[in-house]
Amino acid sequence: MSVVPPMDKRPELLSVKQLGKTFNGEVEALRGMNLTVNSGDFVSLLGPSGCGKSTVLRMIAGLMEPTTGRIGWQGEHGSGSIGVVFQEPTLMPWASVEKNVWLPFRLAGQSLKSARPRIREALGLVGLEEFSDSYPRELSGGMKMRVSIARALATNPRVILMDEPFAALDEITRFKLNHDLLELKSKIGCTILFVTHSVFESVFLSDRIAVMTARPGRVLTEITVGEPYPRDDDFRTSSSYAAYCRVTSESLQQSMLEAA
């Protein structure tokens, strides 16, 4: 069990400074966005749809160049440093679960045999070790998402980027996966940057919530959720949870006024 140091003692991992993005020279998606992610953080980006949350994530993943500003990484940063989970499970339907999780290793030139211990471990963490020979179509939506998470964390990345990963799932599955994600995080101490438009989800999951304004997006407020991990269903029904949700919700309302 890895121990994540308290929030104020975590080393900086990633800093986003004065980030701006304009599409086709006319649509300004982001303007002057600042964000710092420290090693071991669970940070949520919360904002109305179309505020540029996913754009930030895409730029951090290196899929897009910023128009202005910069994204800085501490330490060595290569192609295995980032894990990504999209809103859809994004599995290859022609490959078994094991081969899907193998993908990042395979692209790095590693054979299935040598990657197998890591694949097994990752599948074990999401509770799917028995399904390594199954095909994605044989799995439920929640299980597919677990495979996607296993693939993202298998390479032991410095940060896992999650773009509304549970938005398409039913509420029961979403609650379960929220819970399991936190358990997973406390086991391996990974850093997660999580995009969501759900106030409840962001409060339940994160140490820190960065509330974004509507387009052009930037971080308006940061809310620190002081509740210690592990968090369970008792937290979901507690009065502190309700209080955090109210604060976050008000801040979200504020951010939407800010843009208008």
Partner: peptide, 14 residues
């Protein structure tokens, strides 16, 4: 090809 998978391949430096 699925555009998310294409992005994933890019992220992993394929």
């Amino acid at each position: 090809t699925d555009h998310n998978l294409r992005d994933l391949f890019r992220i992993y430096g394929a």
